[in-house]
């Protein structure tokens, strides 16, 4: 299997997970979307030196992955793609802000290091939450909910078509790569001399393909307006899910849980 086909299968695998039938999959897409958005806002709202407050929020992704039967590996491998961006974004913090915040077992911990760790933790939490939502909700259902919360339809349609077209583009490139390698056995990649022609051909082929796909869509009544499949109407369980989790996030964020737990045990 070529690397490109392998990548295509990886991209599709998360979307395929959304066809599951667990309790989490059956929750109304809007309830999951509101919960995820609330989770993101709450996590991001922590001050840059607050780390301990973020730790309880890990319960959410761990619990959801268990309930939704989402393989940890598929979420963590995608998380690794996002982490380097925030790692390099926050790398300068320990250098620029070296003022000591506290001493931990004799080692001074700077405010810069705290903000760096905070960026990493926030990235892990937010990316995981979004991945969990995508892995448990079909793409067109998510798109429909985006339209319902007044995201301009043109953007949602662009997003949908980009996701769909990605498959087509990769399979086109994969066929070209296979044909190239079968006729240039000794070469490992594409020779620099052929790269221009290869990319040019890929552009022309994908353009032609896009046009044919568009014509096929028009033949089936597509008029520029994407008609999303309707999901089931919201049930009491969906409201309980959304309200219960949002309240928990609120408590985790604004109540000092460590103090409350400490007092309970102290008594």
């Amino acid at each position: 299997m070529s690397k490109l086909t392998d990548s295509l299968n990886k991209i599709q695998s998360l979307e395929e997970l959304s066809d599951g039938s667990t309790v989490l999959h059956r929750i109304h897409p809007m309830a999951k979307m509101i919960t995820t958005i609330f989770f993101l806002v709450v996590v991001i709202s922590f001050e840059r030196h607050q780390i301990s407050g973020l730790i309880p929020f890990f319960i959410y992704p761990i619990l959801m992955m268990a309930i939704g039967e989402i393989p940890y590996k598929s979420v963590l491998s995608r998380l690794l793609i996002a982490l380097p961006f925030s790692f390099f974004a926050g790398l300068s913090n320990p250098i620029l802000d070296s003022e000591t915040a506290f001493i931990l077992t004799g080692i001074p911990v700077s405010y810069g290091l705290l903000s760096f760790l905070s960026i990493l933790l926030k990235t892990v939490l937010t990316v995981m939450a979004v991945l969990i939502m995508v892995a448990t909700t079909p793409m067109d259902q998510l798109a429909r909910q985006l339209v319902r919360i007044r995201v301009p339809k043109i953007f949602v349609m662009q997003l949908m078509l980009t996701v769909r077209y990605l498959t087509i583009l990769i399979s086109e490139a994969s066929s070209m790569m296979n044909a190239y390698h079968l006729r240039s056995v000794k070469q490992k990649g594409i020779a620099l001399d052929h790269m221009g022609t290869f990319l040019g051909q890929l552009l022309l082929r994908s353009y032609g393909r896009a046009e044919r796909v568009y014509l096929a869509m028009k033949c089936r009544g597509f008029d520029g307006d994407y008609h999303f499949a309707r999901s089931h109407s919201a049930r009491t369980s969906d409201l309980i899910f959304c309200f219960g989790l949002c309240t928990s996030f609120f408590i985790f964020r604004w109540c000092n849980l460590r103090l409350i737990i400490g007092r309970l045990f102290g008594q």
Binding site: Q12, P138, I168, R209, V213, A216, H227
Partner: peptide
């Protein structure tokens, strides 16, 4: 109804069922 020469030009949704319902939904 027009069935294209190459089915890859016609099918683009994530699931077969979504592709089949694409026309009626439109």
């Amino acid at each position: 109804g027009f069935v294209f020469q190459n089915p890859d030009d016609q099918l683009f949704m994530a699931r077969v069922y979504d592709d089949i319902t694409f026309g009626p939904r439109n």
